[in-house]
Amino acid sequence: MIGIFHYLALSAVLFCIGLYGVLTRRNGIAVLMSIELMFNAANINFVAFSYYFKGIHFISGEVFPLFVIAVAASEAAVGLAIILSLYRNKKTVNVDEANQLRG
């Protein structure tokens, strides 16, 4: 039977796949995509908790993802603008090739 554990396990795995991508990907856009995966994992958590444990504050778990989606959209927009502006200057979007700033 599917319980809360299954959803949480799914979200934990998704979060850690995202984390792996963040730590290893060289392309800035790929890092951004991995971060989006992490956001989605947290959203699954919220909805699953609020569905399985209907406490007095259950509605906050259902509403939270709406806000997170809006935040993710604005973050993606700003992030892509920054990546494009770097691309114009250096013709690369790789995070580790952007290494002018070393002490």
Binding site: G3, F5, L8, A9, A12, F15, C16, Y52, F53
Partner: peptide, 15 residues
């Protein structure tokens, strides 16, 4: 991930 999944095991299934 393993640590997280392991710590979720204590949760009750819920309604």
């Amino acid at each position: 991930a393993g640590f997280l999944v392991d710590s979720f095991r204590s949760l009750k299934p819920g309604s």
